[in-house]
Design a protein around this nucleic acid. Structure first.
Lengths: 167, 167
DNA sequence: ATAAACTTTCAATAATTATTGAAAGTTTAA
DNA sequence: TTAAACTTTCAATAATTATTGAAAGTTTAT
């Protein structure tokens, strides 16, 4: 596998993994491209490399900026805008976890809390609903908290000790 | 909020969260319905309750069974098949984490490993590709391992101590 | 062996989501 | 102020994904 093959393979794989971290294909591919680029890229360059339209590139770059993963780089003397992505995987993970928590998990926790707080009318089905949604609420909340704490730690002594415990 | 409202809210919320754990809406809704049901349900009952077609119900139940989340219950004297879901959230989390790891994360780790193992031809761009995909490989592998270990632990002393550390 | 009671399959269709591209908008230079 | 260089917006279209429903398949009882 040479450089070009490896690059294409990486971009397409990372792109299709997009769903896993909750973003679409083009968005993930743009991020992947920037992630292995040695310099900021212009919109033209991104369009060319990924064979996607100007509009698509513009919208997805905007979303990546909303997530805080991509930033505009203004290159002195250049009219065009250039883009680059966060290069530290640790920081990338932190941002993604935080955003997904805020956008998707927190709202669900809220609903689970509401649902599990309905009045117990004494019927079996109500008891079951309360019991099960409460269990789900607690699990979701715990998982959310742990993931956030985990990615927020730097690779410091705590994480290192945990890794030892867990591997 | 009464029982019916709470039930509808729970099913639709859990359904739309489906993407987060990598399954489709109908599949998540069927699982949600079974999760709060006090008894196994027949296909008829599921169709009726969720207002979805027979084919859709059949296919999604099959998928849930493939995941190992739902099981057929044969009720003596009954011709129909009845279905129920795993009721322990801890076990549910374990299964989902394991399946997603196997189906999606492991293959990506493999590709990242291949890509980061290409020959270093000394150029800057190759060095960057290797460096960044290697970082991503290590992060992904670590995250995958930790999540699996976490959900595999019972709520035993280790998890409890971690919770203390992390909350 | 037949029919009733059920489940599965899958081509057709609908719903959703992503993408395009050209017009409108913005910024900069002269 | 004008025009060139660029970006954004968004209605139209394409691609993808989910859903239907009826025919085919299976199982059980008689």
């Amino acid at each position: 596998m040479n450089y070009e093959e490896a690059k294409i393979k990486f971009i397409s794989t990372w792109g299709s993994l997009g769903t896993l971290w909750g973003i679409n294909k083009a968005m993930a591919q743009i991020q992947a491209l920037l992630f292995i680029s040695t310099k900021p890229l212009s919109m033209e360059e991104i369009m060319e490399e990924l064979q996607i339209s100007r509009g698509n590139t513009s919208m997805n770059l905007r979303q990546l900026m909303d997530w805080g993963i991509v930033t505009k780089e203004l290159i002195p003397g250049e009219r065009k805008e250039y883009f680059s992505t966060e290069k530290e995987v640790q920081e990338l993970a932190r941002i993604v976890a935080k955003e997904r928590s805020r956008r998707e998990i927190k709202p669900v926790i809220k609903v689970l809390n509401e649902v599990s707080s309905i009045e117990d009318d004494g019927t079996e089905k109500t008891k079951e609903l309360i019991k099960q949604t409460k269990a789900l609420h607690d699990l979701t909340e715990t998982a959310d908290a742990m993931i956030n704490k985990l990615v927020n730690q730097q690779q410091n002594w705590i994480t290192k000790s945990l890794l030892k415990l867990f591997t």
